[in-house]
């Protein structure tokens, strides 16, 4: 028995059990028959109509494509789940996409107001300004101008003015 979730809804977990040696897979208590056709192709019925899907594993996750739409489905590893990030920490700006830093608009130690420009980034010909999510003091701008970064990388850390009560 495995727990799976769609990458865009990690809170919603599904119980999935594959019966070895058969085409049957039990998902949340219901049976679905899936034929493997080779080359990443699969066939299954939906409301009695045959559907063709494609899927490739990607580590512990699977990329699935159906009718032009694609999803990433992850198998939950109990040990990793406990170490999951608590969501966005106050004052920390993460890169929304991979790219390069064009210019820094602030410096460590500087006081900034909410909405003030911290840095300008660019990716695939799109330029955008990362602004302070809250008023406070800039702790760090870890990526220098001209340096590249991946999606999710920390681009700025601002220590909020008010500490949690």
């Amino acid at each position: 028995m495995n727990a799976f979730h769609f990458s865009d809804t990690p809170q919603r977990r599904h119980r999935v059990h594959r019966q070895p040696g058969s085409d049957q897979v039990v998902v949340d208590g219901k049976h679905v028959a899936v034929q493997a056709l080779g080359g990443g192709r699969f066939r299954a019925l939906l409301d009695g109509r045959p559907q063709q899907l494609h899927a490739v594993p990607d580590g512990d996750a699977v990329l699935v494509q159906w009718r032009g739409r694609a999803w990433r489905i992850e198998r939950i590893d109990a040990t990793r789940a406990n170490a999951a990030a608590a969501g966005s920490e106050a004052g920390v700006s993460h890169a929304p996409m991979p790219g390069v830093v064009v210019s820094l608009q602030a410096a460590a130690g500087q006081r900034v107001s909410e909405g003030e420009a911290l840095l300008v980034i660019e990716s695939m010909k799109l330029q955008m300004t990362i602004t302070a999510a809250c008023s406070g003091t800039v702790q760090a701008l870890p990526v220098a101008a001209g340096q590249t970064f991946q999606r999710g990388a920390v681009l700025a850390q601002v220590k909020p003015d008010e500490e949690a009560r």
């Binding site: 949340d28 299954a44 699935v64």
Partner: peptide, 16 residues
């Protein structure tokens, strides 16, 4: 369920 079932098969399917 359809997508999850395919995902489960794909994880074990060498041809995929």
């Amino acid at each position: 369920r359809l997508l999850l079932a395919v995902a489960a098969r794909a994880l074990h399917e060498p041809a995929a």
